[in-house]
């Protein structure tokens, strides 16, 4: 069994949790990389490709981009803040993740209501696949945030700080993926 350590190991230079999250993020990069590769294939090979500016809601997409960027900034600040200051930052971050998911739900329902579903064309098939998988990552990050917040009494502040540091790296990744999705689908 690998013991949980909060300090950097002499051999790796990082704590176990940091090493673990980097390995996890490497696997996530490969997962999204494969999907973006499929997107490139389908888009370049498609005889016609709709413009996201015409078929998607740019105001909602932009709002979600800003929401996620602010949320990531808050979690990034929480990683270096003392616990009394980190707690509200994490809570606001959770609230913004819920706001992001709410806007995404509104966007999805409007698209489905008007018949813009994955079976319509390749654009919507890739759009729903990528944004859906991304939304699942936001849900997972939200659950992890709440788990880290609720575990502070049980595991102590030092271990919670390690969890917040790992979560901040995760949220930066989730934000970067969203930026690419926003660029590929909403702005092109």
């Amino acid at each position: 069994m690998i013991p949980y350590t909060t300090t950097a190991r002499a051999d790796t230079g990082v704590s176990n949790v940091t090493l673990g999250i980097w390995l996890f993020l490497a696997s996530e990069v490969m997962l999204f990389g494969a999907l973006f590769s499929s997107y490139a294939l389908l888009r370049v090979a498609a005889p016609a490709w709709p413009s996201g500016l015409e078929v998607l809601s740019l105001p909602l997409g932009t709002t979600n981009t800003v929401t996620l960027a602010i949320m990531t900034g808050l979690i990034w600040r929480a990683r270096s803040a003392p616990w009394p200051a980190a707690r509200p930052l994490m809570l606001i971050g959770c609230a913004l993740a819920v706001v992001f998911l709410g806007f995404k739900g509104v966007e999805y329902s409007a698209e489905i209501r008007t018949g813009r579903v994955p079976s319509v064309n390749t654009f919507f098939a890739t759009y729903f696949t990528l944004t859906g998988l991304h939304a699942l990552h936001v849900i997972g990050g939200l659950v992890a945030n709440l788990w880290a917040l609720s575990g502070v009494r049980r595991v102590g502040m030092e271990m919670t700080a390690g969890r917040i540091r790992a979560l901040s790296l995760y949220w930066v990744f989730v934000d970067l993926v969203w930026m690419i999705i926003f660029l590929l689908f909403y702005l092109s």
């Binding site: 013991p3 949980y4 350590t5 909060t6 300090t7 190991r9 595991v155 030092e158």
Partner: peptide
């Protein structure tokens, strides 16, 4: 490896 004072044994 070296443990800190808050290390809780076990893999969490």
């Amino acid at each position: 490896p070296r443990r800190s004072s808050k290390s809780g044994g076990g893999n969490r």
